[in-house]
Design a protein around this nucleic acid. Structure first.
Length: 619
RNA sequence: GCGGGUGUAGCUCAGUUGGUUAGAGUAUCGGCCUGUCACGCCGAGGGUCGCGGGUUCAAGUCCCGUCACUCGCGCCA
C-alpha cells in the first residue's frame, strides 16, 4: 500500500464500498457526537467524511487533533444510510470508517479559518497566504489561472506561435514606467532593470526571422498600485511579422473569445471577428474614457453648441471660453427624488470637479435650475437631438475638454451603477483604435508622444512630413473588456528614417535616439520585417473570469498595496557585505531605516541581514 | 505626493447622547451527547479599544497628531 494514500479525497464512491483504503489530507472540520466523531478530510481534490466510534482505535487521537492538522487514515469504505447521504458532496454517498490514524503534522490555532468563506483583513491573508490558499475561493482562482494559461498556450501554439523566453535582467529604458533596478556587482555603478515588458526583445525576435512569437511574460513596473494593478504581473506577450493591424486582430480575437467562452461560466462573449472597433476620439466622447465598459448603455453627447447663447450663464461662459458641455443621460429617473441628483453633484465635487449640473424631467416637464434658465423650448430641442424621452433626466459635465471628458466618463459609470443599468452575465470586448501619435504637453509646452513612440504612424513618413502632428494617428490599439484594459499593442515602426522623424517631432535629435534605442535602431538598419503585436494581461483576464474585483485574488503570492511581501518580508534590509559587493552606499535616510529594521529583522530568518551582517564596529 | 474608508478578544463584528464590570458570533480549552455534515447543549479563559497627546469629574465614544491596511486621484501606454 502506498505510504500516504490509495485514493484522493474526491475519489471514493459507492463502487468502492467494502474496500480498505488509505487517505491523507487536512482536518477540514470535526463534528464530535460523544461516542461518534466525524472528520471532514480535505485535500486538493475534495472532501471525504471520515468516521470513528468507540470501536475504532483511532477515535481518541483523532478527537484530540486541531483543525488543519495533516493526517493519514487507514479504514474501510462504508455506504451511508439513505438518510445520511450528503447530496452536496461528490463523495456524499460513502464515508471511511477509520481503523488507524497517523499524524503527519500538528496544526496550532489558526490565524484564519480555512473552512469558512468569511472575509479576513488582507494583511492577515497575505501574511498567512499558504493558509489562505487552502481556502476554496483563492484555491479555485489559482487553479483557474492555471487552466487559463494552459489554454492560452495551446491556442497560441495551434496558431503557429512559438514560445521563447527573453531576458529578465535587461537595460533600463527612459520612457514608460519606473524600472525596478538591480545593481551590478561586476560593473560598479551600473544597473540592470527588470523588464516592464519584453518589448525590444520581441521585436528583435521578429528581426531574427521567427515570424510568430509568444510568451507568458513576467513584467515589472515600479509604480503605485491599484485594485487591478500589481507591480509584477504576467502578459500574454506576442508579436507577428508581415502583418497589418487587421491580421493582429484576426489572430488574437479567437484566442481571447475562446478562452472567455471556455472559462466564462456560461456568460455571453463578444464573438471572435465581431469585436467592435472604436476610434479613440469616439471613445473619449461617447464614453469619457479610453477603456469603455460596453455593458453600460449610457452614451455621452457633446451639447456645447446648445449653450453658445443660453440663459444659463455658467455654460455660456464655459463654451465661450473654449470649453465644452457634455450630456450624460439618466434614463427613467422621473421617480427619483431631488436628492438623487444632488448626491451626484456632491460626489462630483468631492472628486475634485467643479460640479455636475442636471436637468430632471417628469412627464415632459423639465426641472432644475439649468432647465429653468436655459428655457423649456431650448431644452426640448436638446432632448430631441439626443433622442431622450419625457421621463429621462440629464447630467451635464462642463469645463475644459479634458476635465469635462473625465467627469462625464465617471458620471456615466456612476449613473449606470446607481440605476442598475450595467448588463450582467456578459463579457463585452472592443478594440480602441486610431490613438493619436502625439499630444501637446501643457506643462512642458511641447509636442510629445501620447503613448508608445515605437508605433508606426498612420500614413508613415508622408504623414509625419505633411500633417499637423496632433492630427496624426498611430497604428496602435487596445483591447478592452467590461471596462478593463486587457492589452495594448501596435504595428511597430520598423523604419529608422520614420523613427528619427517621429522623435524629431517630439523634440529629440538623432543622437538622442541612438543613445537610448541604439540597439533596436541598429537592428532595423540590418533587415527588419514589418511587424506588430500586443500583450493581453493574464492577471486581468483571470480577474474577469473569476469575477474578482482585485488582482491579488488571482495571484498566488501577491505583494500588498505598498509592494511588500508580508510573508517573506520583502523588501528587506541586506547585509553591509552584500551592499559592498554591489557598490552601494545608503543615504542617511536609508541608513536610519536599516538601523531601525535591523533589530527586528536580525531575528527574522527570512532576512538576509539576520546571520550575515557584520558587527557595527567593522562597518 | 493628495483625498476617502477602516482599525475594539486569535478571527468577524456590535458598542446609543461621553457615564458604573467593554459585548456577541466564531476559534481555543474543559464537560455532556452514537449519525452529523456551518452538528447541538453547558461552562471557562481570552482586551494597552492601532499608537501618542489633549479636553473632561469621567473618553472605545469628542479634539489634535501619528501609524497600519485598503479604495481612489496623481503616476502607470
Amino acid at each position: 500500500m502506498h505510504a500516504y494514500r490509495t485514493h484522493n479525497c474526491a475519489a471514493l464512491t459507492k463502487e468502492n464500498v467494502g474496500e480498505t483504503v488509505r487517505l491523507s489530507g487536512w482536518i477540514h472540520r470535526k463534528r464530535d457526537h460523544g461516542g461518534v466523531l466525524f472528520v471532514d478530510l480535505r485535500d486538493h481534490y475534495g472532501i471525504t467524511q471520515v468516521v470513528a466510534d468507540e470501536d475504532s482505535p483511532a477515535l481518541e487521537l483523532l478527537d484530540s487533533l486541531k483543525l488543519e492538522s495533516v493526517i493519514t487514515i487507514d479504514g474501510e469504505v462504508k455506504a451511508r444510510d439513505a438518510a445520511a447521504v450528503n447530496p452536496n458532496l461528490p463523495t456524499g454517498e460513502i464515508e471511511v470508517f477509520a481503523r488507524s490514524v497517523t499524524v503527519q503534522s500538528h496544526a496550532n490555532e489558526l490565524p484564519l479559518i480555512v473552512n469558512s468563506a468569511e472575509d479576513y483583513p488582507e494583511d492577515t491573508r497575505l501574511k498567512y497566504r499558504f493558509i489562505d490558499l487552502r481556502r476554496e475561493r483563492v484555491h479555485n482562482n489559482i487553479m483557474l489561472r492555471n487552466r487559463v494559461i494552459t489554454s492560452l498556450r495551446r491556442r497560441m501554439t495551434d496558431q503557429g506561435f512559438s514560445e521563447f523566453q527573453t531576458p529578465i535582467l535587461g537595460a533600463s529604458s527612459p520612457e514608460g514606467a519606473r524600472d525596478y533596478l538591480v545593481p551590478s556587482r561586476l560593473h560598479p555603478g551600473r544597473f540592470y532593470a527588470l523588464p516592464q515588458a519584453p518589448q525590444m526583445f520581441k521585436q528583435l525576435l521578429m528581426v531574427a526571422g521567427f515570424d510568430r512569437y509568444f510568451q507568458i511574460a513576467p513584467c515589472f513596473r515600479d509604480e503605485d498600485l491599484r485594485a487591478d494593478r500589481s507591480p509584477e504581473f504576467y502578459q500574454l506577450d506576442f508579436e507577428m511579422s508581415f502583418v497589418t493591424q487587421e491580421d493582429v486582430f484576426q489572430a488574437i480575437e479567437p484566442v481571447l473569445a475562446g478562452v472567455f467562452e471556455e472559462f466564462g461560466g456560461g456568460k455571453s462573449v463578444t464573438p471572435a471577428g465581431e469585436f467592435p472597433r472604436i476610434p479613440y476620439a469616439d471613445s473619449m466622447l461617447k464614453y469619457g474614457t479610453d477603456k469603455p465598459d460596453l455593458r453600460n448603455p449610457i452614451i455621452i453627447s457633446d451639447v456645447s453648441h446648445h449653450f453658445e447663447k443660453s440663459g444659463f450663464g455658467i455654460f455660456e461662459k464655459i463654451v465661450g471660453g473654449g470649453g465644452v458641455v457634455r450630456a450624460i443621460p439618466a434614463p427613467e429617473t422621473h421617480e427619483k427624488s431631488r436628492k438623487f441628483f444632488d448626491e451626484m453633484n456632491d460626489w462630483a465635487r468631492k472628486e475634485g470637479f467643479s460640479g455636475l449640473g442636471y436637468v430632471t424631467r417628469k412627464q415632459g416637464e423639465f426641472g432644475g435650475p439649468i432647465a429653468k434658465n436655459h428655457g423649456p423650448e431650448e431644452m426640448a430641442k436638446l432632448y430631441d437631438e439626443l433622442g431622450l424621452g419625457e421621463n429621462d433626466g440629464l447630467f451635464f459635465a462642463a469645463g475644459k475638454e479634458k476635465d469635462a471628458v473625465k467627469l462625464a466618463g465617471a458620471a456615466r459609470t456612476r449613473t449606470a451603477e446607481n440605476l442598475d443599468l450595467i448588463e450582467q452575465g456578459c463579457f463585452k470586448f472592443c478594440w480602441i483604435v486610431d490613438f493619436p501619435m502625439f499630444e501637446y504637453d501643457e506643462e512642458l509646452k511641447k509636442i510629445d508622444f501620447s503613448h508608445n513612440p515605437f508605433s508606426m504612424p498612420q500614413g508613415e513618413m508622408e504623414a509625419l512630413e505633411n500633417q499637423d502632428p496632433l492630427e496624426i494617428k498611430a497604428w496602435q490599439y487596445d483591447i478592452v473588456c467590461n471596462g478593463y484594459e486587457l492589452s495594448s499593442g501596435a504595428i511597430r515602426n520598423h523604419r529608422p528614417d520614420i523613427m528619427y522623424k517621429a522623435f524629431e517631432i517630439a523634440g529629440y535629435t538623432q543622437a538622442d535616439v541612438d543613445a537610448n534605442f541604439g540597439g533596436m535602431i541598429e537592428a532595423f538598419k540590418l533587415g527588419a520585417p514589418p511587424h506588430g503585436g500586443s500583450a493581453p494581461g493574464i492577471d486581468r483576464i483571470v480577474m474577469l473570469l473569476a469575477d474578482e474585483p482585485n488582482i491579488r485574488e488571482v495571484i498566488a503570492f501577491p505583494l500588498n498595496q505598498r509592494a511588500q511581501d508580508l510573508m517573506m518580508g520583502a523588501p528587506s534590509v541586506v547585509s553591509a557585505r552584500q551592499l559592498r559587493d554591489v557598490h552601494i552606499r545608503l543615504s542617511g535616510e536609508a541608513v536610519d531605516v536599516n538601523k531601525n529594521a535591523t533589530a527586528a529583522e536580525k531575528t527574522d530568518m527570512n532576512s538576509n541581514a539576520a546571520q550575515q551582517d557584520i558587527p557595527p564596529q567593522d562597518r
